[in-house]
Each structure stands twice: as C-alpha cells, then as structure tokens.
Write a protein that binds this DNA or RNA. Structure first.
Lengths: 181, 181
DNA sequence: TTGCTAAGCGGAGACAGTCTCCGTATTGTT
DNA sequence: AACAATACGGAGACTGTCTCCGCTTAGCAA
C-alpha cells in the first residue's frame, strides 16, 4: 500500500468516526470525504459502501472496549465481574450511538472485531459458570442478544427524552434471572 | 374532510403498510405515492414527513395487537399471561420488521397508539403483581424496554442469518429474573 | 538525479430520493 | 349552474450516493 493511500485511509477513518458520532450512522459520505480532504472517489475506493466504512470505524472502537475487560478477567468474584462487564458494554455501545450494536449480535469468527467482543464476553461467562455463579444453560450469545437489546432500548428511549431505567438496572434484572440461587 | 381526500388518505396508508413491510422503513415515499395513484404533493400534504406516515401505519397495527391481549386479561394465571403477552409482543414487532419497536418505548399518553400498548401491558403487569407472581419493584416501562430490546436483537440477528435464540427463550430469561420465588 | 509505471487521486456527473410550489381540477354547497 | 374552498399532482430544486476516467504522484530502477 502506497504511503499516500495509507495516509488517506487513516484520515478517512478518523474523520468518519467523528462524523458518525456527531451525526449518526447516516452522516453524508461525500461530506466525510470533503472533511478528510479527499474526493468522493477516494473514499469509495477504500470503502465500497457505507457499511464498510462503518465497519472500519467499529473495529478501532471494539479493540478499545475489549481492552477494558482485562482487569475484570482476574476479579475475585467472576459473577459480579460479568455483571460489570455487561453494564460497561451497554455504556460503550450507547456512547457510540448504537453504531456498533450489530457487532454484539455477531458470533462470526471471521469478523475479527465482533469476534473479539464475543470471545471476551465468553471468557467472563465461562469464569462465572465455573464458580457456579450463573446458570449453566445460559449461553454467551443469549447474553449478547439481551445486552445489545438493552443498548438499543436505552439509546432510543433516551433519544425520545423519556425517563428511562438505567443500564445498571436492566442488566441487573437480566442477571437476576441468570444467577444461580 | 373531502371525500377524495379521505379516499387518498386511506389508499396511502394501505399502500405504505405494504411497502414498508416489503422494503423496510426506508421505502421510497415517491414510490408509495405513485403506487397509490397520487402525486408526491398529495402524500406530503397528508403526511409532512416519513415519520408521520410511519406513525399512521403503526396506529392500525397497534390496535390489532392490543386486541390480541383481551383473552389474556382473563387468564387464570396472570403471571403466565404476562409471559405470553411479552412473547406475542416480540413476535408482532418482529413480524412488523421493527417498524414499531419505537412504540414500545413510549409512555406518552398523548400518543394514542403507544399508549394503547403501554396501557395494555400495564394491566397485565398489575394483575401479575396482584397475585404476587412478579416482583413489585419492576415497572411496566422496564419490561417494555427489555421487550423492545429483544425484538430488536431477534430481528437483527435473524437478518444476519445467525443461529439465534427464540423470543420465548429470551423472554423466559427475563421472566426468571422478575418472577417471585 | 532522472524517468518510468503502476497505484492512487478526485471531480464531473448520472441517478435516486425528498420535499415544495403553484397552476389546475374536483367537491360540495347555495 | 355557479362558485368558493379544498385538494390534486407534476415540475423541479436540492441533497446524497456512487461511478467513471483523465490526471497526478509515489516509489523504484538505472
């Protein structure tokens, strides 16, 4: 890859992140190109469609989120650690304006980013199961579905200006159904 | 309202329902107008923007869903009735391609449609609480948030072709956290 | 250095969708 | 039958997506 190509690629991802965050996932691509100081042609060569650009943006995001889990993996109480992780996940996805909620639903090993999140979650789930903290019949995918759903719901009811229950509370309800007793 | 105006209004809602179902919430409005045999101007006078048309479509839908709850209100086991209702709600929202998921998040009395759904749910929740079937600290809004989240997650993971847990299962998990014991 | 070439750039423009304006047509009433 | 008031609908301005292709530039080899 030529140096100028790499430069433009980086710049585009950076600008796109900013713009998606500010204007939601429908931000104008031509506008992103302009802000990055390149023509639309350049943007579309690097990222054939909106999805691809969104993906690239999410990749960077997901890595930083997954890094967040490291301390939780060594926590004394794995069940509480799992609880914390799910709350953080909701917070992160919300902060990212739902751009990434699709990633939580993926179990695709080929899609690196999604896999990182799924895998990280799985480790925490397994640790909690190992100490008998949560039911053995609950799968990581199920928790991811519920978590992404909560992110969605929190994001959208907040957007509508409604008084909304906190992510902590909703994750808490889920965990109440999942914890052994 | 003039007779021709009413006719066009009805036709537009009917065609829009069909088109949104077929093409998702981004279906072309000019195309809907054309199919309804009217000009774009007519569509936009009746419905100043996409949101308004979507709303009108959802109104009809929500009424039919709420009607579905009638028998459940008299069920012998209110807790199971609530469980059933939530599952149906997810099914309905999914069948409606998520067009209406926003409605579940609203607690707005002024928005008739959303209110019908919220109110119906509330009755079922209250009945379940009355017999001590579910925790008193759980609110209808919280259940609606979780339910709409599940609809979202099921819809999107299905769309991505992933093996996905059933709505019954996920609602079941929620109910496990909410039931008294 | 210089010159070459593949890789990359970016703008013009085709296309599709949203929404508005306003002259024309239709309705329902007197 | 005539006349308001109401409603219609198409032309077109505007915005955004995405493609095509002539031009530019980086990187390499002599």
């Amino acid at each position: 890859m030529r140096a100028d190509a790499r430069r433009n690629y980086e710049k585009l991802v950076a600008v796109a992140t900013e713009s998606f965050l500010a204007n939601g996932p429908d931000a104008s691509l031509d506008d992103i190109a302009k802000r990055a100081g390149v023509g639309p042609g350049t943007l579309y060569r690097h990222f054939p469609n909106r999805e691809a650009l969104l993906d690239a943006v999410c990749v960077r995001w997901a890595d930083s989120v997954a890094a967040d889990a490291a301390p939780l993996l060594e926590a004394a109480d794995p069940t509480e650690a799992l609880n914390d992780w799910l709350v953080r996940l909701v917070d992160h996805v919300s902060a990212f304006k739902g751009l990434a909620s699709a990633l939580l639903l993926s179990t695709d090993r080929k899609h690196d980013t999604a896999w990182v999140l799924h895998h990280t979650s799985e480790e925490l789930v397994e640790r909690a199961k190992a100490v008998g903290g949560i039911r053995a019949d609950v799968t990581t995918s199920e928790l991811m579905q519920l978590t992404s759903g909560i992110s969605y719901a929190c994001g959208h009811s907040k957007q509508a200006g409604k008084p909304t229950s906190t992510p902590e509370r909703l994750i808490g309800l889920i965990m109440d159904g999942v914890r052994t007793r």
